[in-house]
Simulated scan of single mutants.
Amino acid sequence: MTSGPDLTGLVALVTGASAGIGRYVAEGLAARGAAVAGLARGAGRLRTAMDDVAAATGARTLALPADVTDPAAVDAAVAEVARVLGPVGLLVNNAGLIDAAEVPLWEADPDQWWAVVESQVRGPFLLARAVLPGMVAAGGGRVVDLASGISTRANPHYSAYSAGKTAQVRITEAVHLAGSAHGVRAFDLAPGVVDTAMTRAMPMHTGRTEWTRPQDVVDLVVAIAAGELDQWSGRFVRAGVDDLDTLRATTPTGDARRLRLVPYGDTDPLG
């Protein structure tokens, strides 16, 4: 087993697990003993990925072909995880689309724009809605939402992705606020820019030579899964920038790493 926290006994559900960041996270969790269910739309590629993870780590895996925006498919997938592997103790919401073109909002295709928002908002909502009752009943669990720096600032060319990721931050905090009394923790984890097919396809990254290491993302997810960063529940962390030892030793207070309006001055009534 890979060095680091032992996650034996944990059942993890990772969406978008057939490639990219989701695939890295699935293998990283499995390498530390977790049983991992992967969910993605493409059945063949997903099954191959989960079989490869099982072969590489010896962990139990499960492939769940499903669309994260389909309530019936999500409910059925979560029920299958519980039946085959056990109740989900860690949910990693990674699946999501991105704007098809770098254009201003008024030039975007409305159907594609909305599909992006649905993948980033409806997907995490449906997965959390299906998984959280089991976590509450078990006395706790953890949700990791793959966030983005775009969720904290406006972007002229990725309006759908920006809107969806910002809404996802609110979902994370809602889970934290409602779930903390039941032992449920929720985190926004921005992976930075990992070298994947999706990021390679984005014109804004043309010519990029510096990338976030996939291992930095995996290490943060593993630390969260092991309960090492529970004091960061409801807040934003960034792979490749945040030092893991510093996060472990820091207890944030107030609105640190939360999405908030900034007062215009000391006399701002909203301040």
Rank of each mutant, 00 (worst) to 15 (best):
E173Q: 09
E173P: 02
V175F: 00
V175N: 01
H176D: 15
H176Q: 14
H176W: 13
H176Y: 08
L177V: 14
L177A: 15
G179K: 02
A181S: 15
H182S: 14
H182I: 09
G183S: 12
G183A: 11
R185E: 09
R185F: 03
F187D: 03
F187G: 01
L189R: 01
G192Y: 10
V193T: 12
V194I: 09
D195E: 14
D195W: 00
D195C: 06
D195S: 13
T196H: 01
T196W: 09
T196R: 00
T196Q: 03
T196L: 11
A197L: 10
A197G: 13
M198C: 01
M198Y: 11
M198H: 04
M198P: 04
T199K: 10
T199W: 13
R200T: 00
R200W: 06
A201G: 09
A201D: 14
M204N: 06
H205D: 12
H205E: 06
H205S: 01
R208G: 08
T209G: 12
T209I: 08
E210D: 14
T212N: 11
T212Q: 10
R213K: 15
R213A: 15
P214D: 03
P214G: 08
P214L: 03
V217D: 08
V217E: 06
V218F: 05
D219I: 04
D219L: 07
L220C: 08
L220P: 03
V221F: 07
V221G: 00
V221M: 07
V221L: 05
V222Q: 01
V222E: 02
A223L: 05
I224K: 00
A225I: 10
A225W: 00
A226Y: 01
A226K: 06
G227A: 06
D230M: 07
W232E: 02
W232V: 05
G234D: 02
G234F: 01
R235S: 05
F236N: 05
F236E: 03
F236S: 00
F236G: 00
V237W: 01
V237Y: 01
V237R: 02
V237D: 07
R238P: 02
A239Q: 07
A239K: 03
G240K: 13
G240W: 11
G240D: 13
